[in-house]
């Protein structure tokens, strides 16, 4: 039943150049002005006394129950809600709704609803632009963190991920090993077979290295022909076993008609050690330098007191 306070204003509400509805807080439609009926194609005989759901599309019914109704109950109003009206002819028409609860013995709600087809087109353009920018930003982020030749994470990405793993190692009391890898005689490969063949070797080795490492292990191209891996939870034996697999992965690079070999340096950081990421990488790099100086195609472990050959 139309609230007593509203009834005298009914003729004035019919003059408004916008849709106006009056409903109960329990969703029953008491009144719809002429503009609303005309704009959204409703016959008053099929609208008055019906539930608000009558005018909403199924999606807007969800939106009404999830947002609008709780807001009306809690805050007594809602502003600028974008909804979709299901017109009297069954068509969908975008609209903007404001609603205000008027308290009393029998609370009622006054709704102002205006169709927003043009406004929606602008919204859609903005949403499309937003999604395009987001996709572009995601692509840029991936490019900024990926080495294009090998598809592996680059040095910047490695440093961020290894830092995370270092914190995780401290938090969980695990060892963590750093493995530096350098392709032997890479300059000779470039000189003898050309830079395209050199790139092929890097690319194939990168792919093999990725296949060798577990998904959770960080492996990256550190620069030039140098690669680096960070193995959370691996002690020196685990890292040594990983290095043996890397030697095999290198030998299966077949681009230049002879096996590729690598030199590898390892350092294992024990939990609660003072070594930071930079120090770990330097220690692994020093071990790698020893592997090179000792004849290449081998793995050297830096125990921080000595350099030992890993079997």
């Amino acid at each position: 039943m139309m609230p007593r306070q509203i009834a005298p204003f009914k003729p004035n509400l019919d003059l408004l150049p916008g849709g106006c509805l009056v409903s109960s807080l329990s969703r029953q439609i008491y009144f719809a002005n002429k503009f609303f009926l005309h704009e959204f194609g409703f016959d008053p005989n099929h609208l008055i006394g019906r539930k608000l759901e009558t005018i909403f599309s199924p999606a807007s019914r969800i939106f009404y129950d999830s947002y609008l109704h709780p807001m009306l109950l809690h805050e007594g109003q809602c502003r600028e809600a974008n909804i979709v009206i299901q017109t009297g002819q069954g068509a969908r028409m975008p609209a903007v709704a404001n609603a205000q609860v008027y308290d009393g013995t029998d609370p009622y709600v006054i709704w102002c609803i205006t169709q927003s087809e043009n406004r929606n087109k602008i919204y859609e353009d903005l949403v499309t632009a937003r999604e395009e920018i987001k996709a572009y930003a995601d692509k840029m982020e991936t490019l900024a963190l990926t080495d294009t030749l090998t598809g592996l994470p680059n040095r910047r990405s490695f440093e961020a991920n290894a830092q995370r793993d270092l914190h995780s190692a401290d938090r969980t009391g695990q060892p963590i090993s750093f493995v530096m890898i350098d392709i032997d005689h890479f300059k000779s490969i470039n000189d003898s077979f050309g830079h395209a063949a050199g790139d092929q070797v890097l690319s194939t080795f990168g792919r093999n290295l990725r296949a060798t490492a577990r998904k959770s292990e960080v492996s990256a191209r550190f620069g030039g022909e140098e690669f680096v891996c960070c193995l959370l939870g691996a002690d020196q034996y685990g890292a040594g076993a990983f290095a043996r697999r890397v030697h095999l992965a290198a030998r299966s690079v077949a681009q230049i008609g002879m096996p590729v070999t690598v030199s590898i340096g390892i350092v294992t950081r024990q939990p609660a050690s003072d070594l930071d990421l930079e120090a770990c990488v330097e220690l692994a790099d020093a071990a790698l330098y020893h592997a090179k100086a000792n004849g290449r195609n081998q793995t050297i472990l830096n125990t921080q007191t000595a350099f030992e050959i890993c079997p």
């Binding site: 599309s57 199924p58 999606a59 807007s60 969800i62 939106f63 947002y67 807001m71 809602c78 502003r79 600028e80 809600a81 974008n82 909804i83 979709v84 969908r92 929606n120 919204y123 859609e124 949403v127």
Partner: peptide, 20 residues
């Protein structure tokens, strides 16, 4: 469950433009 796929896609579109 009460809804067609298209209804729920329309809901996602509504979520896209509502900044309550």
């Amino acid at each position: 469950g009460g809804f067609e796929h298209a209804d729920l896609e329309e809901l996602l579109a509504l979520m896209d433009i509502n900044y309550i």
